[in-house]
Amino acid sequence: QGEKVEGLQAQALYPWRAKKDNHLNFNKNDVITVLEQQDMWWFGEVQGQKGWFPKSYVKLISG
């Protein structure tokens, strides 16, 4: 089970394309609201879409 977080935002360092239905698509420089953190994967929201993404593709910009 991941840790729920509030008020964290991350900026995409690279584009990410979903490999599964529960993954989040985003483009480089998109700002993602992080909702949950697990070891290597984070759950977040961007442009009304929610899903999992690899944390190595983003950098935290707040929180």
Rank of each mutant, 00 (worst) to 15 (best):
D39L: 04
S62T: 07
T33G: 07
E3L: 06
D30C: 08
L24K: 00
G63S: 06
K20C: 08
W41P: 00
W16T: 02
Q47D: 03
V31Y: 12
N25V: 07
E3C: 09
K55R: 14
K4L: 06
L8S: 10
Q9C: 10
A10R: 01
L13I: 04
W42E: 01
G63D: 15
L8M: 15
A18N: 11
G63M: 14
G51E: 01
L24E: 02
L24M: 02
K59V: 07
E6A: 09
K59E: 09
N27G: 08
P54H: 03
W52P: 01
Q37G: 11
N22E: 11
D39F: 05
A10G: 07
G2C: 05
L8E: 13
W41L: 06
Q9Y: 12
N29P: 01
K4G: 02
W52S: 00
Y14A: 11
D39G: 13
W16N: 07
I32R: 01
S62M: 11
P15T: 12
M40W: 03
K28N: 02
I61Q: 11
G63W: 06
E6D: 07
P54W: 03
Q1R: 05
L24A: 03
N22A: 10
E3Q: 14
Q47S: 08
V46C: 14
F43I: 02
D30R: 01
F53Q: 00
F43T: 01
K4N: 13
P54M: 06
W42R: 01
I32M: 03
K59Q: 10
N25G: 11
K50Q: 05
F26I: 11
T33M: 12
P15F: 07
Q38E: 14
K59I: 07
G48V: 02
E36V: 12
I61N: 11
Y57F: 15
L8A: 14
S62H: 04
L24Q: 02
V34G: 03
W42T: 03
E36M: 08
N22F: 10
E45P: 00
G63L: 11
Q49P: 02
A10V: 15
L13T: 07
D39C: 06
K28T: 15
N29M: 13
V31D: 03
E45Y: 14
Y57D: 04
F53K: 00
G48A: 07
L24T: 02
D21S: 11
E36T: 09
V31K: 13
W16R: 10
I32E: 00
H23S: 05
N22M: 04
F53R: 00
W42H: 02
D39S: 09
G2I: 07
G44N: 00
I61V: 15
K28P: 02
G44C: 01
D30F: 01
D30Q: 13
